[in-house]
Simulated assay, not measured.
Amino acid sequence: MQLHFQQAFRAFILLGFSTMLLKLHQSGDISKFINPKYEGLSQIASIIFLILFFIQVTRVWSTQKKSLHDCHHEDHSCHHDHGHAPLNTTKVIAYLVIIFPLVTGFLLPPKVLDASIADKKGAMLILSNQKQISLKQKNTLGHETAPQKDEKNINSQEEISLDDGPEDPINLENEKVISEEEYNDLVKQLELKNKIEMNDSVYAAFYDEIGMDVGKYKGKKIKLKGFVYKEKEIAQNQLIISRFLITHCIADASIIGFLSEFPEAPSLDNDTWIEAEGVLDVTSYNGTELPLIKITGWKKINEPETPYLYPISIKIM
């Protein structure tokens, strides 16, 4: 019996990836790397790695000793790599690249994105650009702007505010995909509310809609939570209550949040998680209108178990 070390090392790599994915799922840390709607695919990937490991194990030992394999070329050269050839620089680099995520995955605890990442991205610039991009996308899709309401309708809507009824017309806590009709109902709910609750399940949708037409929501009460981020460009009594939005995985994470204003802002450090209530107002940054929350009450909170936000996927019928 002959042991082939490279084949054994490849088997070890496959087992390592399978074990790492299963470990992340078991601990719940997988949500810090990918959108939960892809957890099923991640679990399938871990099973595939495990199957490939068992296949690879059959190549670790051989009963016959052969130089490489039976290559009978006229020039007596054979360059096929079946895991028995000596290591060279190219192979070493390839193996290092492959095992790097394994080493970091097992040895380093997952770190939640924070204000330092927001600082590198330039949060205020991103927030102002997001609105311009969202408006462009909405116009491209041909979505109609909600018709203006007369004073009688406004008073009527205030009387039937959903604050007095069920909190949510549809349950989004466990929903990864909703229909366009359900999404439209969600937007109508936002327009009718006198007090907007930015729950994690609807945060991205509400944030996008508020950004589309800031003036429509001016004067409404709002409640939200997020981590503190400050930039030099904003006033001393202002900060951004921020969250990271993950569309697919952590690599595409983008910061979203609301510029907020209150006297105690200077006393709060970056990355402090707070829950705040306030009133929506309008401000401008680089010529772009942005929502501004005038905080009326706030408190410090612990970092949530799930700190990231995920967009609602709309099913195209």
Rank of each mutant, 00 (worst) to 15 (best):
T89V: 10
T90L: 13
V92S: 07
V92Y: 04
V92C: 11
V92K: 07
I93F: 14
A94D: 09
A94E: 09
Y95H: 10
Y95D: 02
L96A: 15
L96V: 12
L96Y: 06
L96P: 04
V97C: 06
V97Q: 02
V97F: 12
V97K: 08
I98R: 06
F100E: 05
P101K: 10
L102R: 07
L102A: 12
L102P: 06
T104G: 00
T104C: 02
T104H: 04
T104D: 06
F106G: 08
F106T: 09
F106L: 01
F106A: 02
F106P: 01
L107K: 02
L108M: 12
K111Q: 15
K111S: 08
V112R: 02
L113R: 01
L113P: 02
L113M: 03
D114H: 00
D114W: 01
A115F: 03
A115H: 00
A115M: 01
I117F: 08
I117Y: 07
A118Q: 00
K120C: 04
K121C: 06
K121R: 11
G122L: 03
A123R: 00
M124L: 12
M124K: 00
L125K: 05
L125D: 11
I126P: 00
L127W: 06
S128N: 06
N129F: 03
N129T: 08
Q130V: 04
Q132W: 04
Q132F: 03
I133W: 02
I133M: 12
S134D: 11
S134K: 14
S134C: 05
L135C: 04
K136C: 05
K136L: 14
Q137K: 06
K138P: 03
K138Y: 07
K138N: 08
T140K: 15
T140C: 02
L141A: 13
L141K: 13
H143C: 04
E144G: 05
E144V: 08
E144Q: 11
T145M: 05
A146K: 10
P147N: 03
Q148R: 05
Q148G: 02
Q148M: 09
D150Q: 09
K152A: 12
K152D: 10
N153A: 12
N153T: 15
I154Q: 09
S156M: 10
S156A: 15
E158R: 13
E158W: 08
E158Q: 12
I160Q: 13
I160H: 08
I160K: 14
I160A: 14
L162W: 10
L162E: 06
D164S: 14
G165P: 00
G165H: 12
P166V: 15
P166D: 09
P166F: 13
E167G: 13
E167H: 13
E167L: 13
P169N: 14
P169Y: 10
P169I: 09
I170N: 09
